[in-house]
Simulated scan of single mutants.
Amino acid sequence: MSAIRFEPTKQYYATTSLVIGYALCSSLLAVINKFAITKFNYPGLLTALQYITSAVGVWVLGKFGFLHHDPFKFDIANKFLPAAVVFYLAIFTNTNLLRHANVDTFIVFRSLTPLLVALADTIFRRQPCPSKLTFMSLLIILGGAVGYVATDSAFTLTAYSWAFAYLVTITTEMVYIKHMVMNLGLNTWGFVLYNNLLSLMMAPIFWVLTGEYNEVFAALVANGGNWFEPVAFTAVSFYWVFDLRLVSETCKLDL
């Protein structure tokens, strides 16, 4: 009987520690992202660095046997591409939201995603409806978000346009990627590899479309070829470290 009691207790504490770790990394990453985009004001290049960090990190750890990921295959990549496009847009709008708004606004809009994902899962994926208490809690969060928007002294049309774009793309990404992962049978680390590697391949297209490559080259010329100022290098370094840590915590939760 003691062994039977021990296992659920052990699982409970393991899950709790992972949730706390994820929440801590996610919260800190929002602040670090804001710091990074403020000191290194190139959202396309900054997100590309994120994709490189995650993809290379998974590939290297896989080579050394610390994790197992599905091998990269072009036929699977072709099927996964629509999900990667949505993922890229979610990260792109996320970074631009932080570029134009404060962290509080980002957190408020991010807090609305559970409600939208729950509704989308029920409508499009035929998942069970949330319980009454859960749905009521999500509506309370919605009410708080509406109150925040109504009283936000830092309201700007640009910031809130990016906020709504982020809300649409992140909700779509969460629901659609669930569908893709289940259909393609990728393991968690394989999903991370495909998502980030395909997003990295798309990055140059957005650099050209947004004209950011001109800004980067102009900054390089102005700084005598130096990529980073010391403060910007520190901000981006923290961004890399906490992005890898957040990926790790997220994958553990999924597993």
Rank of each mutant, 00 (worst) to 15 (best):
D152N: 06
M182H: 14
F40R: 10
T113G: 01
E212N: 08
I205C: 02
T47P: 05
T172W: 13
M180N: 10
A219C: 00
A23Y: 06
L45Q: 13
P8M: 08
P114E: 00
V85E: 10
L253T: 01
E212P: 14
L46K: 07
K79H: 07
M182C: 13
N41M: 11
V192W: 09
T134N: 12
S161E: 12
F206V: 07
V108F: 04
V192T: 14
P82R: 12
V175M: 04
Y194H: 05
C25P: 12
H69V: 10
I20W: 09
V146K: 10
P82L: 08
L139G: 08
G211N: 02
A150E: 14
A83I: 12
T53S: 09
A235G: 02
F64P: 07
N214D: 03
F238D: 07
N183W: 12
V31P: 09
L28K: 07
F74M: 09
K132I: 15
A218F: 01
L220R: 00
L246N: 08
T9K: 10
V103I: 11
S17Y: 10
Y12V: 07
L157Y: 14
G144Y: 08
I37P: 05
L167F: 02
N196M: 03
A235Y: 00
L115Y: 01
L142N: 08
V146A: 13
F106G: 05
S2V: 15
L209P: 07
I76L: 13
T151C: 13
W240D: 00
K73R: 14
T151I: 14
N223V: 05
Y51C: 07
L167N: 01
N226H: 04
T16N: 06
K178H: 03
T171G: 08
K63G: 11
F92M: 05
T151P: 12
H179T: 07
T151A: 14
L46Y: 09
E249P: 05
T210R: 00
I170A: 08
L112G: 06
